[in-house]
Design a binder for these strands. Structure first.
Ligand code: SF4
Ligand code: SF4
Lengths: 158, 158
DNA sequence: GTAACGTGGATAAGTTCTATCCGCGATACT
DNA sequence: AGTATCGCGGATAGAACTTATCCACGTTAC
């Protein structure tokens, strides 16, 4: 069970975007986080395709959130970057071997698949309960409101 | 987010072991499920190391559950095979870039890590609520009690 | 016209997953 | 004793995925 590293990058980007006043470019976001510019671009494009951010092409372009930060959930970010497929994928091994179950019986999901799906639902529900606004508030609580002021100042610099 | 295929194999093996009367060998388990014998052995060894199954070496040896099926949870099997590491691993990117946070501040987990950890706890709690006995009962309910009778018969065959 | 920007495709390197093989010690039957 | 069957661990390929880079293209502001 592993999430890709891009998830972390994307979450940080969304928090930064929630504090920015205008569009922020890939270059700037990568510079700010100290990560690969070209690779981060791929993940931002995934956020864009998922409709979480809006992109402005051309000079002075960049990304901005399409919705208020309080309406963007952690779950959406995770699924945009890491995909929405379930962690457990049935390979139907019950249809193999000498005592294989018939295809008729395998019409519906077995108990194992159901239990796994229920666990993943619990995971998603938990992630869906956290918004970018919550995360930003957490940062303010942890390191004080001056942090985002410095961030906005840095973003305003040419 | 993906679980390894070995998880599914291991779960099936545990259910089979819960219905068997004596030790069942790797060869027999692999034969029954129609999967690679040598690779399945690796996963059974993981279950053994985790203490979920006991192994008897030598001829007529094999594996059997160390505990009643009602006391073996799905979570234990998943963690034995797939590891207990959390899906989200912090790479501390907040300590990078021009406005890097100080190490002092990063002593404790940030809001993102906490939210991810909470979601994974929910996932684990859900998995911990399902036992091998539950899964076996599910099979009986789905395909009838005759299935396990045939299984025991097949296992008894030389 | 030029420089900065997002987009998508192609590509390479690194890592993990899947699978196989071998030698070792243990056990049971002959 | 000898042999066949078994679990255990290490070494080792091959496949699949993740991470990262690069380039050609259309768009926008100065
Ligand atoms: S019985 Fe369940 S775990 Fe096994 S192959 Fe079918 S869906 Fe997957
Ligand atoms: S701020 Fe949170 S998500 Fe970012 S590096 Fe630190 S722990 Fe990870």
């Amino acid at each position: 069970m592993k999430l890709t590293e891009g998830v972390e990058w994307a979450v940080h980007c969304c928090v930064v975007l929630s504090q920015a006043e205008g569009p922020v470019s890939t270059t700037r976001l990568a510079e700010f986080h100290g990560v690969s510019r070209t690779y981060l671009a791929k993940h931002l494009q995934q956020l864009s395709r998922a409709g979480l951010v809006r992109s402005t092409p051309g000079r002075d372009g960049g990304y901005e959130l399409t919705r208020p930060a309080a309406e963007v959930t952690l779950l959406e970010i995770v699924q945009a970057v890491d995909g929405a497929e379930s962690a457990f994928r049935c390979t139907e091994i019950r249809q193999r071997g000498p005592l294989a179950a018939s295809k008729e019986v395998c019409r519906k999901a077995c108990g194992v698949a159901q239990a796994m799906a229920a666990a993943e639902r619990a995971w998603r529900t938990s992630l869906a309960g956290v918004t970018v606004a919550d995360l930003a508030a957490g940062v303010t609580a942890d390191v004080g409101p001056a942090t985002f002021d410095r961030l906005r100042g840095w973003l305003a610099d040419a």
